[in-house]
Design a protein around this nucleic acid. Structure first.
Lengths: 216, 216
DNA sequence: GTGTGATAGTGTTCCTGTTCACATGGCTCC
DNA sequence: GGAGCCATGTGAACAGGAACACTATCACAC
């Protein structure tokens, strides 16, 4: 569906990337626990996956394993972090500082993986101009300028659905190439902009569907 | 991967369900705009999908369309709402009232689709015992009892990863069959419990991966 | 009442991702 | 230094979802 731009690496399934992220988290834990090596089998059963899948996922990016041994935890962790771009700091712009926006901002899980919300945009005059934890809240019109100055690379859309497309358009115009959208709308963005949607309604309604099935 | 319990309806792809949810939202909008009928083609291009896919998705559940015309907006909307179980009210338990938990609670998008957070659980003594917007915050130990009394059907897990599995176990023990998990952990639940994960780190790291690719 | 046009429903094909199974190759122990 | 072990890496089979193309059917015009 999404025609992928031509990367060095030929054709990585989306699902592989998502699993890479999961593996990384697991390896972080294993390293903390002092585990030195881990086999694809062990890794697989933690997420009830197939061990072949784990190996194939990793093999897309190189030969990280040692036959007869498995994978060295810290080595693999470092590789995956590099592949996922977690070895650097990304400057993130958060647009919308309502309930969801402020929760995302206060959620400390991001920072420690290199995602830094360095500026917030919100047109509400009650909010714009203030500062939270040293991060300025600015009106949306300053986005283009700030994007350059702060080298913003990721935009998080946490505004009401009606405003989401307009916000996305401005993020794109400001040269941002990666958007995480929380608004329950399908945004239209150019092909070279990577869009990731998180739609809470869909998740809940999927649950609701299954409940409705069993109770029918 | 997920061995599905045997429903009346034989084999609905997960992706179909998710799209159903999207169609429903679109139909709601169309109805508001006074549109009477819509073709699979029109519906498809709003989400850049294939029209055949739209038709197939809908045909899983019956023949809702009229050849030569399309689908009647309000009729189809009602059908989809019924299929998704949105024609009734679900009682939802929110576990964890930290940043994310309270944002979810305050997010008004849920209620209007029939998802009612009727009780919150949090063991923090600062919170337990209080009431927000008429909804009680209770210690986790009261879960089992409340689940029965309030007929809770959906549990939302918004606690730190370390506590998530324990919470899930208690939700399962309390007879809850549908869990929406926001903790960045893979939870283990029995096969008859439907688990839906929302993992913000994965989404961000997917973006990060693509950014890292293009900038290499 | 009949013809025409438009669009739903569906069998088939295609393609992508998952699983299987085996051969490859490094490590260890004798 | 050689033999055996054991887990990786990978080509091939398999499965499931998406796209295509065709057929059936309905509404409306004449």
């Amino acid at each position: 569906m999404t025609p992928r731009p031509s990367f060095k690496i030929p054709k990585i399934p989306e699902m592989t990337i998502r699993r890479l992220s999961v593996y990384t988290r697991c390896l972080l834990q294993l390293e903390e626990d002092g585990v030195k090596t881990v086999s694809s089998e062990e890794l697989a059963e933690r997420f009830n996956l197939n061990s072949a899948q784990v190996r194939k996922d990793l093999a897309y990016f190189g030969e990280f394993g040692v036959r007869g041994i498995g994978y060295y935890v810290s080595g693999l962790k470092a590789e995956l972090q590099r592949i996922l771009g977690l070895d650097r700091e990304w400057q993130v712009a958060l647009v919308g500082f309502g309930n969801l926006g402020s929760a995302l901002f206060n959620y400390k899980g991001f920072a420690h993986q290199g995602f830094r919300i360095s500026v917030i945009f919100d047109d509400d005059p009650q909010k714009a101009g203030r500062t939270v934890d040293g991060v300025p809240i600015l009106p949306l019109r300053e986005l283009a300028q700030e994007a350059k100055g702060r080298n913003l690379q990721i935009g998080i859309v946490a505004v009401p659905p009606a405003a989401a497309q307009a916000v996305a358009d401005r993020l794109v115009a400001a040269g941002i190439k990666a958007i995480l959208n929380f608004a329950p709308t399908r945004l239209k963005v150019p092909k070279d902009v990577r869009l990731q949607n998180v739609d809470l309604s869909i998740e809940l309604e999927t649950l609701s569907f299954y409940l409705a099935q069993v109770s029918r």
